[in-house]
Nucleic acid binder design. Structure first.
Length: 467
RNA sequence: GUCCCCAUCGUCUAGCCAGGUCCAGGACACCGGCCUUUCACGCCGGCGACAGGGGUUCAAAUCCCCUUGGGGACGCCA
């Protein structure tokens, strides 16, 4: 059994989007599962549109997702000698020929073919001219005119193409650069790639590539075409559907584990299981359970999964990923001993890290500025004595623990005849500035006695001044 | 225009290949309820789908055909 070799070949013409991330993920998972190799290759032959910034963005996204590669990154622009050599090989064996037709002429042929009710194709004018290399001449592949090409696809099954649908496509442009279909095949052959998992927008390229493999006389790789990711309107996911870049999801506060879980689950299944860790995925992923139908990207479900991954993560592991979101608010938590406890108190309440940062803010805030609505409702002359009473009791408390705190509140409730909520809500607003927060004893224990008392007194002062 | 692919709740899907155990299961969302110091979490319940039509069969979500709908591809882009 030979080792599985997969690859991810993005073209650096923009940031890594979720669709691309998913195919990268499938390839990576399959390689890891099969104890194979995963290769990264940058397809930058389109020098007009390729940028270094895009290359960097792709690395950044892949690293964030934790998709590491075993070989590469290879750059196609540095492999022109290899392509030239392979072009020559095909010309020498009669599988390719030079073509002197101008682009305008080819365009006319296409129109003509289309008008005749067929597929736009090159008409083979130079096929038998036996032209040599020359200025302005491209190289075309001599495609079979009859018969069929069969794609044995692992996810879609067998697909049969009529060869007369194919035309003599260009493999080398007149400027000497290789075209996509040619470069991909040469790369995959020379790099030893034997498993190609890619979006099904590539199925129509496959018969051309299969013919190339045959012309080179090498065995075919395993092909698996995975369905596209669609937007809400069921068209190919694009910027009009909102955020599509992987890094945008990081900025919205999604965990890489959650994005991975969501993306894999969109188009692959393992029975009814919804939640997967990275390790589980490596142990379970296979090609057989990839679905055949395209899927709609649903950020709601991503959010739900993100919430699950936040809940499942050890709080301490969330400190680093959460830190940037609080830093935006001027708070540094990396070295703060309270950070893990704060996260623990919030992890069941946050769908994203950004949400968590918003909720965590009050723990670290120097001075609480209660939300006006909350203050109007709970910081009133009637509640002032309660706040003071709690502050006084806390000062006298021997041990500042959640249990002891509970005792204070229960005792006060009994003494005043008030329901617990009547006491807790004003205290909550005084401490957090809001009407909703984690448990009152919990936040008090985290904030600490001194600060709690200070916040309580401060709130009492506010009421006194206002009154 | 030509070619290719796809089709189960609003969405992601299980089931389909090896037809009966499916008046179709799970998840997200939504709606109730419970829990409760708030908000969440959690738990319980509800709503909700085999695109349509023909076959084959004792029996079809599962197999075949057609229709419809959707997606994708047709470059000296990748």
């Amino acid at each position: 059994m030979t080792q599985v070799v997969t690859r991810f070949p993005p073209s650096p013409t923009g940031s890594l989007h979720v669709g691309g991330a998913r195919t990268a993920l499938f390839n990576w998972l399959y390689a890891r599962r099969m104890k194979g190799k995963f290769i990264l290759r940058i397809e930058d032959t389109d020098t007009e549109r390729s940028t270094q910034a895009s290359v960097d963005a792709i690395f950044e996204a892949l690293e964030w997702l934790g998709l590491d590669w075993d070989e590469g990154p290879f750059y196609q622009t540095r492999r022109f000698a290899v392509y030239r050599e392979h072009v020559q090989k095909l010309v020498d064996t009669g599988h390719a020929y030079y073509c002197a037709c101008r682009p305008e002429e080819v365009e006319r042929m296409r129109q003509a073919a289309m008008a005749a009710g067929g597929k736009p194709k090159y008409d083979g004018t130079c096929r038998h001219k036996n032209l040599g290399a020359g200025e302005g001449r491209a190289v075309r592949f001599k495609a079979p005119l009859t018969g069929t090409t069969v794609l044995a696809d692992v996810v879609k099954g067998s697909i049969v193409f009529q060869n007369d649908e194919l035309d003599d496509f260009v493999i080398c442009r007149s400027d000497g650069t290789p075209t996509y279909n040619f470069a991909v095949v040469v790369d995959d052959i020379t790099m030893g790639v034997n498993t190609i998992i890619r979006g099904d927008d590539h199925v129509m390229n496959t018969p051309k590539q299969i013919q190339l493999y045959k012309a080179f006389g090498v065995p075919l790789p395993l092909f698996g075409h995975v369905p596209m990711v669609l937007g809400k309107d069921r068209t190919r996911l694009s910027k009009r559907h909102g955020a599509t870049s992987v890094t945008a999801y990081r900025e919205m506060g999604y965990l890489p584990e959650a994005l991975i879980n969501y993306l894999v689950r969109l188009g692959w299944s393992h029975g009814d299981q919804e939640f997967f860790t990275r390790e589980e995925l490596i142990g379970l992923f296979n090609l057989e359970n990839i679905g055949r139908a395209a899927g709609v990207f649903d950020i709601e479900k991503l959010s739900a999964l993100n919430a699950d991954h936040i809940k499942a993560a050890p709080p301490a592991a969330l400190v680093a990923p959460l830190a940037p979101f609080l830093r935006e608010k001027g708070i540094a938590i990396e070295a703060d001993p309270r950070a893990a406890k704060v996260i623990a108190s919030l992890s069941a309440r946050s769908k994203t890290l950004r949400e968590m940062a918003d909720q965590a803010f009050f723990y670290f805030e120097e001075e609480i500025r209660p939300e006006p609505e909350a203050a109007r409702k709970f910081l009133t002359p009637e509640t002032l004595p309660l706040l003071t009473a709690v502050a006084d009791a806390l000062e006298a408390l021997a041990e500042f623990s959640e249990e002891a705190l509970e005792g204070v509140f229960k005792g006060l409730a009994e003494k005043t005849g008030l329901k617990l909520g009547k006491i807790a809500q004003p205290v909550r607003v005084a401490l957090s500035g809001r009407t909703a927060s984690p448990g009152i004893y919990e936040i008090m224990a985290i904030i600490g006695r001194e600060r709690v008392i200070a916040r309580l007194r401060k709130a009492a002062d506010r009421i006194a001044q206002a009154g």
